[in-house]
């Protein structure tokens, strides 16, 4: 009988079905006599099947349409600022300004009681926000909720003052 160590070494090939007939026979013979290895392999087989059920969320076609233009801007070394969860000072002033415009526009949309946003398709909302500032990359608006962007990037007091002074930016 082959050793438990050998079983370990052959496991990946066994799971992927690439063991030779002879090795497969020896492998399964071991499993029929060693309950520890049998249990180990059974849970690994299940794990492999389970992880293959993982589905990937697909990006929308609009995202792909903007991929190359964005890359070209980066190549021309006029990169668009990268949006990440960091505080305002880390952002360039221009970005901050652009974001403020987005955020203000978004907040005014989201918080104006007369507008019922629940019935508004998200694409429409994003397009509206984008239309208010051509500098902003589509991806930024597409991937994060405007409120998330605002809360992650802007200090509370700035947010408050923006909400209070946003009339002129209303879309």
């Amino acid at each position: 009988m082959i050793s438990c160590r050998k079983v370990k070494r052959w496991t990946v090939d066994y799971l992927e079905g690439t063991l030779s007939e002879k090795k497969k026979f020896l492998f399964e013979e071991h499993l029929s006599k060693c309950s520890r290895c049998a249990q180990e392999i059974e849970t690994l087989v299940k794990t492999q099947k389970l992880v293959r059920l993982k589905v990937r969320e697909e990006m929308p076609e609009t995202f792909w349409a903007h991929y190359l233009p964005r890359l070209k801007r980066r190549l021309e070394e006029k990169p668009l600022p990268r949006l990440a969860w960091r505080p305002v000072p880390a952002l360039a002033l221009a970005t901050a300004t652009a974001l403020v415009l987005l955020v203000v526009a978004a907040i005014s949309l989201l918080r104006t009681p007369s507008l019922n946003l629940e019935n508004l398709p998200r694409e429409v909302l994003v397009e509206e926000v984008m239309a208010s500032n051509s500098e902003l990359d589509y991806f930024i608006a597409e991937s994060f909720e405007p409120e998330e962007i605002a809360q992650a990037l802007l200090p509370r007091e700035i947010l408050n003052s923006l909400v209070n002074n946003n009339q002129e930016f209303t879309l």
């Binding site: 990946v12 299940k46 794990t47």
Partner: peptide
């Protein structure tokens, strides 16, 4: 695979 099995024990045991 071993690490994943250990983390996902609830699903595979």
């Amino acid at each position: 695979l071993q690490k994943l099995r250990n983390r996902l024990k609830g699903y595979v045991e």
